[in-house]
Design a protein around this nucleic acid. Sequence first.
DNA 1: TATTGTATGTTTGATTTCCAACAAGGAGAA
DNA 2: TTCTCCTTGTTGGAAATCAAACATACAATA
Lengths: 222, 222
Amino acid sequence: MKEYLTVLRNVPFFKGLEDDEILAILHCVNATIISKSANSYIFKAGDTTDVMGLVLSGSTLIIQEDLWGHRNILSKCNVGDFFGELYAANNAVLNISVVANVDSTILLLNINHLLSTCPSSCIHHQRLIHNLVGVLSNKILILNNKITHTSKRTTRDKLLSYLSSESIRQGSLSFDIPFDRQQLADYLCVERAAMSAELSKLKKEGLLTTYRNHFELKKKAV
Amino acid sequence: MKEYLTVLRNVPFFKGLEDDEILAILHCVNATIISKSANSYIFKAGDTTDVMGLVLSGSTLIIQEDLWGHRNILSKCNVGDFFGELYAANNAVLNISVVANVDSTILLLNINHLLSTCPSSCIHHQRLIHNLVGVLSNKILILNNKITHTSKRTTRDKLLSYLSSESIRQGSLSFDIPFDRQQLADYLCVERAAMSAELSKLKKEGLLTTYRNHFELKKKAV
DNA sequence: TATTGTATGTTTGATTTCCAACAAGGAGAA
DNA sequence: TTCTCCTTGTTGGAAATCAAACATACAATA
């Protein structure tokens, strides 16, 4: 297990924990390591699971198939990423499958063990639970924000919603965003070209100025 | 506190707990009750908080203001609903405000107390933590689903994505949905009229039949 | 039965977005 | 410098969506 500490140290679940504490917890929740060859299934849609997975080496793909058999890759989990925690925590039927992208090593953590204080009342357990709740609620905040922006009907409103929230979040009318144009368009679920055009309009109307990923909003048209 | 047990029994956080267990937990996490008159703030955007709120009587509004002062009501919390748990759990700056809609009574729960096993090692605590994680991860699953559907570019693809997932979830090509047409359109972020038209097309193409909120999908065109 | 209200389907012109291609500008490499 | 490559901005025709009507069907009620 020790060989993977360099990975585990940087996992949000284990934030703020020392190496020996991590090892103690892994032991206390009876964590197991499995090896999966490329293209083999780790979770299959329709299953339930009480363990979550954490990629120690290799990578996995989260895929979803619709009724007509169209296969859709939802995301890729690289070393240090975890998956299945939502279904494990909720005892829900998986509507996604997880397959090894290449030969991979996966750490399996039983979520019920994680959530139960261990017999020896292991003190780091509380930290872990706190981290878990933090990770989950942070994810909800991120998703909520995205939905707030993307549910606006026009490209213009999506842009203004996003830029306004970034400005408020960063506490300044002048701020950088973490996206280039293509990424911003993908995030807002619009066409890059249409978005660029809309940005130009907003500039002409004096609502903002922008250079690359730097934006400045104006409260009133100049 | 006892007078509110009828409310608390039905809150997902307290699912599976008996009345006396609920009372024990409230005591053990040092829960407090506050009264708020109509239109007064409970949380203000920009604040941080380590407590979450639960509506015992009355109701609250979750509101958000953008940079230009446009006020947007995001949701309403009725008796038994809770709010602020995401920010409390994550120690995040609030980007929403919560105001009392009418004169209201609010139960404040300190999330750090909830997440720490109490000195007396109160056994119901584990159940509570488990419930909390369940509630959060379930919410993520719901949001993920919505984003999956709404991020499709056309009304047709949004419909098919949603209907396919519902069909798979309910394990049948013949199923009911919990929305009427207007609600479905709102959920998918499209126009009701355009959606109705698209449904008609899909019918003509033999991909599905529908009556009201009942749908039957066809794997191949008839 | 007649009346009313509600949900759903249809239509149409205006508007917006999509798609594809190209243009402009800058950064880095040869 | 010159030549790429990459990002961003611009444009025009095709396609989709929006908004606002109106039509239809059905249920509930008197």
